[in-house]
C-alpha cells in the first residue's frame, strides 16, 4: 500500500550489482589471464598520465592542487543526498486523512455530504480523520474471538486514501470466512462515511497467532 518506488529500487540494485560484478570479474581476469594482466600493465600508466595532464591543466594559478577535488566533493555531496532521498522514499504513504468533502447549502455533494438529505443545511466542509475510521474498524475486529489481533492503517493510493486491514486469525480459522466477515465490516463503514475507499485485507500469520492455542471447537 505504501509508495515505495519499486521500479527504482530494482533499477538501482541492478546498476550497483552490475558494477560490483564488473569489478570482481576484472580482478579475477587480472589474476588468471596473463593477457589481461599485460594489457592492464600497459594501460594503467597511460591512464595515470592522462589524469596527471588533466590535473595540471585544471590547477589554477597560485593554487597547489586542482579544483577538481572541490568538484569531486560537490558530486559526492549530491550523490549522498540522492541516496538519503532514496532511503527516505521507502515505505512512505501513511496519511492522517480518511475523507474530506464540502457540504453545499442544498442537499449533498462532496465525499461526506450524502447523509445530509434534509437539505437546507449550512454550507461548510467535513473532514473525517484516519483515526476515526481506523478505530471504528479495529474495535469491531477485536470483538471477534477467532482473531488474535488486528491493525488498521490509512495510506494514500494514487491520491485517494485507502485502508489497510491486517488481521491475525487464530490457528485453523478458514481465511475465506475472515475475508467475507471483514469485507462486511468494511461495507458497514462505507455506509457510515458515505464513500467507498480502496481497501486491502491482509490475512497474515504472526508469532502471536502461531503460539496461541487453536480453537478446538469445530
Amino acid at each position: 500500500m505504501n509508495t515505495t518506488p519499486r521500479l527504482l529500487n530494482r533499477f538501482v540494485l541492478a546498476v550497483v550489482g552490475l558494477i560490483a560484478l564488473a569489478l570482481g570479474a576484472g580482478g579475477l581476469a587480472l589474476l588468471t589471464l596473463p593477457a589481461a594482466a599485460g594489457w592492464w600493465r600497459s594501460a594503467a600508466p597511460r591512464a595515470g598520465q592522462a589524469v596527471e595532464d588533466l590535473r595540471s591543466r585544471t590547477t589554477l594559478e597560485g593554487q597547489e592542487d586542482t579544483w577538481l577535488w572541490i568538484a569531486l566533493a560537490l558530486v559526492l555531496v549530491f550523490l549522498i543526498v540522492m541516496l538519503i532521498v532514496w532511503i527516505a522514499a521507502q515505505g512512505r504513504g501513511r496519511t492522517g486523512l480518511f475523507a474530506t468533502g464540502t457540504v453545499t447549502g442544498r442537499g449533498g455533494g462532496g465525499a461526506t455530504g450524502r447523509g445530509d438529505s434534509s437539505g437546507g443545511g449550512t454550507a461548510g466542509s467535513v473532514t473525517i480523520t484516519a483515526a476515526a475510521a481506523e478505530q471504528a474498524l479495529k474495535a469491531a475486529l477485536l470483538e471477534r474471538p477467532d482473531l488474535v489481533g488486528a491493525s488498521v492503517s490509512t495510506w494514500r493510493i494514487r491520491g485517494v486514501p485507502g485502508i489497510r486491514v491486517r488481521v491475525l486469525p487464530r490457528k485453523g480459522v478458514p481465511p475465506y470466512d475472515i475475508a467475507v466477515e471483514v469485507s462486511r465490516l468494511v461495507e458497514a463503514l462505507d455506509a457510515v462515511t458515505g464513500s467507498r475507499t480502496p481497501v486491502l485485507i491482509s490475512v497474515s500469520s504472526g508469532a502471536r497467532a502461531r503460539f496461541t492455542r487453536a480453537d478446538r471447537v469445530t
Binding site: 490457528k171 485453523g172 480459522v173 475475508a179 469485507s183 481497501v199 486491502l200 485485507i201 490475512v203 497474515s204
Partner: peptide, 19 residues
Amino acid sequence: NERAAVVVDAEVVASSLAR
C-alpha cells in the same frame, strides 16, 4: 472478493487446511 483486495499468507491457508 467483491469489495476489497484480499491477500492471505500461505501459513494461514495451511493451518486452515490442516484443521
